[in-house]
Amino acid sequence: MSDAKPIEVFYWPTPNGWKITIMLEECGLPYVVRPIHIGKGEQLTPDFLAISPNNKIPAIIDPDGPDGAPITIFESGAILRYFGEKTGLFYPRDLRARVAVDEWLFWQVSGLGPMAGQAHHFRIYAPEKIPYAIDRFTAEVERLYGVMDRRLSAHPYLAGEDYTIADIACFGWVKLWDRQGIDLARFPAIGRWLAAIKARPAVQRGLAVGSDGRKRGESDG
């Protein structure tokens, strides 16, 4: 894939942004990061909205899309599935196995991510501490961790025996367990899974991409 044109990744270092840089590193696809500073409202510019109409990162432009034509994609789950299908990696061909991956991928994008995001907001960022909101979202995240821990008590990875895009999707959110008010010691299977994924070199490289689009330690020289 060394001759391929780089994929443009519209990114900010958040759990959803990390999904894409981790997947690209795992797959060995060439990419270039286009930082979108969400704190400055850059996600609301017309140019970005043309790619991501929901004004959220991440989004991508793949110059070598289906049939060789460029394609733009928004929504992190859709991007992960696209890369899995494009490369044949971390997203099985077998339909039964693929359904298991999709179940946990959709569980993350519809449940774990939104609920953890609300927990982050009300616990850390909200200008007013609202006990009802803090309790509600912290409790729901804790319930979801229980679901995940039971699954990982029976299987090494979320979709079964193999590491897949479902694990990549969940990792960035679970990595921030302390910001969600979670006592990770209560979820030993998640702790084991989290340590295994953190140890992957591609995961470490994906996490190292910063707000300027560079990996930590890179310089101009």
Rank of each mutant, 00 (worst) to 15 (best):
W107Q: 04
P46G: 14
P63T: 06
Y82N: 14
L24V: 02
P13R: 02
K56E: 12
V109P: 13
K56V: 05
M23Y: 07
L80R: 00
R93L: 08
D64E: 15
G65V: 04
Y31C: 11
R81D: 11
S52H: 09
P63F: 08
A59Y: 04
I51M: 06
I60Y: 14
Q108T: 01
G65A: 10
N54E: 01
V99K: 01
I20T: 14
H37Q: 10
G84D: 01
E25N: 14
S52R: 07
L49Y: 04
R34A: 13
I73L: 15
L80I: 00
I57R: 05
P35A: 11
T45L: 12
L105N: 08
F106Y: 10
W18T: 09
G65M: 06
Q108N: 08
T45N: 12
F48R: 13
S110A: 15
G41F: 00
S52T: 04
L24Q: 01
G88C: 10
I22L: 10
D94Q: 00
T72N: 15
E75A: 11
I79L: 08
G39M: 03
A100G: 09
A59D: 13
K86Q: 12
W107M: 04
K56W: 04
D94W: 00
C27D: 10
T72K: 15
S110Q: 06
R93E: 05
G84M: 01
N16T: 06
I71E: 12
I38K: 01
I20H: 11
A69I: 01
W18N: 13
P30H: 08
K19R: 15
H37T: 03
D47Y: 06
Y91V: 05
G41R: 00
